[in-house]
Structure formats: structure tokens, C-alpha cells
Simulated assay, not measured.
Amino acid sequence: MSQSANSVAREVLGIEAAALTRLAEELPPCFEQVVGMLLQVQGRIIVSGMGKSGHVAAKMAATFASTGSPAQTVHPGEASHGDLGMITSNDAVILISNSGETKELADMIAHCARFAVPLVAMTRKAESTLGQAANHVLLMPDAPEACAIGMAPTTSTTMAMALGDALAVAMMKHRGFDRANFAAFHPGGTLGAQLLRVAAVMHKGDELPVVAADTPMSEVLLTMSQKGFGVAALVEDNRLTGIITDGDLRRNMAGLMERTAGEVATRDPLATTPDTLLLEALGVMNAQKRTVLLVTEGERLTGLIHIHDALRAGVA
């Protein structure tokens, strides 16, 4: 009786998990040297491979680029027909080949040697053509492929991709690459929205509904209507000292028009800072059942965000 799909899946995952554990235990001795060399690259990290290794190379280059290390892929076939010009002496090259004998990589290997471009081999065989030509060899364990015939790139590509992630993360940590840096490279989509700061969407300057303590409530109502946020911020001596909301208006309906902003405002209003994550600010608004949050630097009012600003930015 043939194996069930679930049984095959568990077997494949077990084989690949064991290979990754082995890779961690047998981390290539030159790993730290490679990280140090890549950190010194003045140009770009060029990553390449043929077939499935080429797909891994594309993922590696994308991960490097999005985490602060400029990188790109060069297809081995295209390299032989002019794209070698993309590789300069300011770059470093990582070539991926499980066997180390991928013939399509020959021209790239020769180019690196000719122009003294640092070459890193990611391979299972140090004695291979690629391994012998490289300045550094990231040697992967001789682990079995997870496919039924032991030939389709499965375990080997999983290890190569994981080793690429290890390089990228090691360089990230060395550079002190943080969430703010990451956000700069990921402005689009849900990920970019989650990393947006309040400063990116807040209203400021003339958009702010600012009133003084002695402003008559008739003028306060006009300001609230004109600015369209449903609130007014009480500012005294360049300090945020209070807020007037619809709730404050309802609580002071008796004789409201005879009062001033300072007499109606709620003191010590809830506020956030410009460098707060927009996602966190939205959480505060939801928890406090607010639609508006004032933004301050120290005691100075610098902005205002409305819940709709967060929703428009994709933070939900």
C-alpha cells in the first residue's frame, strides 16, 4: 500500500529539518569571515545559481537588499552574453551549486578571478571546481535530498536558503539595522503599514484645531467645525494643556456659549509622540474609545491623528 500524503509530508519535513539541524551544528568555519567580507563590500552582493539554485539566489538577493545590504541576481546564462558587465571589482559574488560543477557558472567564476572579485561558494563539495576557485567556501552538509528518488533539489535548496537567511540576519545585527530602517525599505502593503510611525500620517500646522484658554466657546465651535476633527486642542504658552471633545460640549450644555475654552476643556489630555508606531497609536484609540489622538513632543502640540488616518494607511 502506498504512503499517504500526510505520511510523505512528515517524512520530507523530517529529512529537511534534520538537515537544517546538522547545518547549524556544522556551521561553515568561514561563516564569520564571509559576513565580515560582505559588510565591507562597497558595491553590491551578486548572488547567482542555475535552476532551483537560481530561485534561491533571487530570494537571497531580495532578503539582503531589504535588510540593508544592496544586492542583485545575475543569471548565469545572461552573464555569458553581456551581463558580466553588471559585476564590478567593488562587488562580491555568491554562487550556489550543490555539486559545485554547474557548467553554466564557468564564465562567472572566470570573471571573478580576472577582476579580483571576492567569490563565495555555497556548495556541498569543497573539492569541486567552484569550491577550489572560491575565496570562501560555505560548505553544506552532505545530507540526502527529500524526494523519492533522491535527486530533485529539496534538502539542498532548503539548506542554501536558510544559510542565506543566516548571512542576512548576521549582517543586520552587525549594522544595527532596526525597525525604522526596515520600514524605509518596505513602504507598501500591510508590512509597510505596520511599521509606519505617527509622524508619517499626522496632521500638523494650520490643520490643527488650536484654541487658547480665553477663546469664547462660540469661536471654539467654529474652529471645531472648520477643522473637521470634532475636537479642539487647548494650548497655553506653547504647551498642550487640554482638549475639548463632543463629550465636553454635552457635559457643559448649560450656559455653554457664556463660557471659555479653558472652562470647558478636559485637562491633561491623552497624547502620543511622533515616533510611536501607528499600529500602537491605533491600539490606544481603540482601547480608550477615541477617534482622535493628539501628538506631542514634550509638552508642545505637534500634530493630531484621526482613526481614519490609520485606516487609510492600511493599519486595521
Rank of each mutant, 00 (worst) to 15 (best):
residue 128 S to K: 10
residue 119 L to C: 08
residue 111 H to C: 05
residue 113 A to W: 06
residue 103 K to N: 08
residue 105 L to R: 05
residue 97 S to M: 06
residue 108 M to C: 03
residue 121 A to E: 07
residue 86 M to Q: 13
residue 117 V to D: 13
residue 93 V to Y: 13
residue 96 I to S: 08
residue 129 T to S: 14
residue 129 T to E: 10
residue 110 A to Q: 13
residue 129 T to W: 03
residue 118 P to G: 08
residue 124 R to D: 02
residue 105 L to W: 03
residue 108 M to Q: 07
residue 107 D to E: 13
residue 113 A to Y: 01
residue 103 K to W: 05
residue 123 T to W: 03
residue 89 S to I: 01
residue 111 H to S: 09
residue 100 G to Q: 10
residue 92 A to W: 04
residue 109 I to W: 05
residue 127 E to P: 00
residue 95 L to Q: 03
residue 108 M to K: 06
residue 100 G to S: 09
residue 114 R to D: 11
residue 116 A to W: 06
residue 93 V to S: 11
residue 120 V to T: 04
residue 99 S to L: 13
residue 132 Q to N: 11
residue 104 E to Q: 09
residue 87 I to P: 01
residue 129 T to N: 12
residue 105 L to V: 03
residue 112 C to N: 05
residue 111 H to R: 11
residue 126 A to Q: 12
residue 116 A to N: 15
residue 121 A to G: 09
residue 105 L to P: 01
residue 128 S to V: 05
residue 118 P to I: 07
residue 127 E to K: 12
residue 128 S to L: 13
residue 132 Q to D: 03
residue 91 D to C: 08
residue 123 T to N: 05
residue 88 T to N: 10
residue 119 L to D: 00
residue 114 R to N: 10
residue 113 A to P: 02
residue 129 T to C: 06
residue 93 V to H: 12
residue 126 A to K: 12
residue 91 D to V: 03
residue 132 Q to F: 03
residue 101 E to R: 08
